[in-house]
Amino acid sequence: MDGFGVTAAFWGLSALAVGSALGIMLARSLLHAVLWLILAFAGLAGLFVTLSADFVAVAQVLVYAGAVGVLVVFAIMLTPNSQTGNSETRMVGPGLFVASVVSGIMVYIATQTDWSTAARGDFPATALEIGTALTNRYLLPFEVASVLLIAAMVGAIVLVRAARDEPERRELAGEGEGEVNTAEAAGREVVAAGSHGGH
């Protein structure tokens, strides 16, 4: 795998990943930030391919670029009225300082220690091996992860749906049956009306 193609790919993709990560920071609008994020995910998936981890790369594209990307877009759509600008708090300066200190330490550690790297051959087929590892040696974490996912899903639904059954929702939309799906809810522009007060 160490042909000149891989090195070229590595430099290109890491530039893409770091560039789009910076893009999130500097994007003017929220939605541009999400698109830069998804580009960063894609860049990272490419880096995984250069490390000949094909299953992980495809899983990354599927879970992150596909699902989490759409999830974040939905979240932005459901909170349309919050300021869409991508403005920062006063913590920009100190934030940068802390972040650069942390990453500086990591870079120092990475470059100084000599990892006992043995030039290992690449693995053409990783899917089969990951599958056997997951179902034999790491069976318990595999089951725990599935329980965690279900808990997260139920939690998310309860959180969002509970917020929707407040009384004023019901008299507002007349007695039609509840929302068909979040897609419709996302279509609505929501305005803050402080004037309602208690009634």
Partner: peptide, 14 residues
């Protein structure tokens, strides 16, 4: 990448 992620998490308002 970790540094940039940390910076975004610390500095952003939304």
């Amino acid at each position: 990448l970790f540094g940039i992620g940390l910076w975004i998490a610390l500095a952003k308002r939304n």
